[in-house]
Design a protein around this nucleic acid. Structure first.
Lengths: 109, 109
DNA sequence: TTTATATTCAACATTATGGTTGAATATAAA
DNA sequence: TTTATATTCAACCATAATGTTGAATATAAA
């Protein structure tokens, strides 16, 4: 059984607080990607992208597999699940509408 | 129908990235609280607490009702539901175990 | 009216984020 | 072996976050 510290949640939420990193995580759900591939959609230096990846790595949201000169980045969803669980734990008194939104349950239009 | 910008998610996740603010939100699920009451559990200046509240307010996670010299703070769960929904949208390829963790669904021990 | 309480404002210091450029390193390709 | 590619390291700058203390403001209580 893994223990979770509140500082882990700090790091997770911090990592999720930037659109660039969220967008990286979203792409990584499909497949692992190299640093250059991850950088491609963004209008910023490779170095900036490298730093975003380092922050994701520090939050344990991605892992890195070095293969020659290529670094393959893949997503680790566990901390996101923890973050989601924290939010759900707050939801005890929420309205059914918000509950459904949070859980992405389909509802009639 | 309300529109959500990615910068809203930025602010929400940033606000959730500090243990003090998460703990405040958790207490506010039960009832609205005055600034001093919110501050009571923490070993920090009232000013620091005031700033945490201001950040939560900027993220629209709490609202403030001024009554005389007292400021009553209450939680607004909507942005948390949005944040949770973003995470759930990532969960397409997750294992059933992670899915259950994220949704806090009970499972056999 | 005087005093105490609730809260914010202003100024300051420290650390973290987010970005840049130029150099270094390691590996692959010509 | 030389050159190109993939990536990080180092130094720097600007801004945001996190905290402090002391003063200001507004309201309630004595």
């Amino acid at each position: 059984m893994v223990e979770y510290k509140s500082s882990d949640l700090d790091r997770t939420f911090t990592a999720l607080s930037h659109e660039v990193r969220r967008s990286m995580l979203a792409r990584l759900q499909q497949s692992e990607l190299r640093v250059t591939e991850l950088a491609e959609p963004f209008d910023m230096s490779l170095n900036a992208v490298s730093k975003h990846i380092r922050l994701l790595e520090a939050a344990n949201l991605v892992t890195r597999r070095v293969e020659g000169r290529d670094h393959w980045i893949s997503v680790n969803p566990e901390p996101m699940a923890q973050a989601s669980a924290w939010i759900e734990a707050q939801a005890k008194f929420w309205s059914p509408r918000l509950h459904k939104l949070a859980k992405l349950v389909e509802r009639k239009p």
